[in-house]
């Protein structure tokens, strides 16, 4: 009996302590998991950049510019980003929601000439600084870009980019003297997303699909941005010979209506805009590009993210 009793007690103790351990584990272990979440959240951003590597143009330009423009000795080039068909990147396996991939805008959708828009009554008759503001274009029932296009973005995207990247550059500044063609190295970018990607995948392979799903859905993806970028680049006309243009960055804040028409374009650096006439001239070309590009094409269901855009114009890649 006492034997029995002690045996029972022992098993009871074991049972209780195991339960306590289990409870402690679940209590301590779960918070660890959840607390890790934010940390895991950060790599997601890197994943997004990876998408950019694929859909956006490779950024070799700065070096390329130097080469051609200044006829350096043919020393071994620093490895340049080579837009080879990108290797199948370890993409998070989760199928993303089909990206609304608007076809590359061939020509800017131009606002139709409004039949006889009543001009605002002119405020003052003939002072020199008459400055009537143009009323916002009455919005057209512009069909939004259909969101669910068959999602086959990559292959058709990169090839057209390449020639665009190299050719126009050659046209920009003429050099009648023929210099030897610099040997182009074709090594992939050294420390770009490629190496980092596998490690990311390894560390959070277990829960990455789950995490990736939520934030990606309501965040602007690179190809969506590419659509707007392409639209505006089509309409951006600037002067390569302007003084200091190679180091200029014009940041515009653009507010749009749900139909993609532009309600406001503000130059962020107002001080420089008002004091530096060269900067103002380039900023004006950027503003004109935005206005000429409206309605901007963005995924219809993402108006909340796209209603204010921050566009930074930097022609340096092209010089």
């Amino acid at each position: 009996m006492s034997d029995n009793d002690s045996g029972l007690r022992r098993s009871l103790i074991i049972s209780v302590s195991l339960h306590v351990l289990l409870g402690a584990l679940s209590y301590l272990g779960l918070p660890f998991l959840t607390r890790d979440m934010p940390v895991e959240d950060a790599p997601i951003v890197i994943d997004l950049v990876e998408i950019a590597e694929r859909t956006a143009a490779p950024p070799p330009s700065a070096k390329q510019k130097e080469q051609v423009a200044q006829k350096v000795e043919p020393k071994p080039e620093p490895p340049k980003v080579e837009p080879k068909p990108e290797p199948p990147k370890p993409e998070p396996p989760k199928p993303e929601p089909p990206k609304p991939e608007p076809p590359k805008p061939v020509e800017p959708p131009k606002p139709q000439p409004q039949p006889q828009k009543p001009e605002p009554p002119k405020p003052e008759p003939k002072s020199e600084q008459v400055d009537p503001t143009l009323p916002p274009e009455p919005k057209k029932p512009d069909p939004k870009p259909e969101p669910p296009k068959p999602p086959k973005p990559e292959p058709e995207k990169t090839p057209p980019k390449k020639p665009v990247e190299e050719d126009p550059f050659k046209d920009l500044m003429k050099n009648v003297e023929k210099y030897r063609q610099q040997p182009k190295s074709s090594t992939p970018p050294p420390s770009q997303a490629a190496p980092s990607a596998p490690t990311q995948g390894a560390t959070n392979s277990a829960n990455s699909p789950r995490i990736l799903n939520a934030p990606l859905a309501d965040r602007a993806t690179m190809s969506e941005k590419d659509a707007i970028r392409a639209q505006i680049e089509q309409n951006w006309v600037f002067d390569v010979g302007a003084k200091g243009i190679e180091s200029m960055v014009i940041v515009l804040r653009v507010a749009i209506n749900p139909d993609g028409t532009v309600t406001r374009v503000d130059v962020v650096d107002t001080v420089r805009y008002n004091t530096d006439s060269g900067y103002r001239a380039v900023a004006d070309t950027a503003k004109r590009a935005v206005l000429k590009s409206q309605p901007l094409k963005y995924p219809a269901q993402k108006y909340e993210e796209f209603k204010v855009l921050e566009l930074s114009f930097a022609p340096r890649d092209r010089l």
Partner: peptide
């Protein structure tokens, strides 16, 4: 973060 940032690095070079 809600503000979408886009870099415009290309344009056309032609007379206005």
């Amino acid at each position: 973060r809600a503000e979408v940032k886009i870099d415009i690095t290309r344009g056309k070079v032609e007379p206005m």
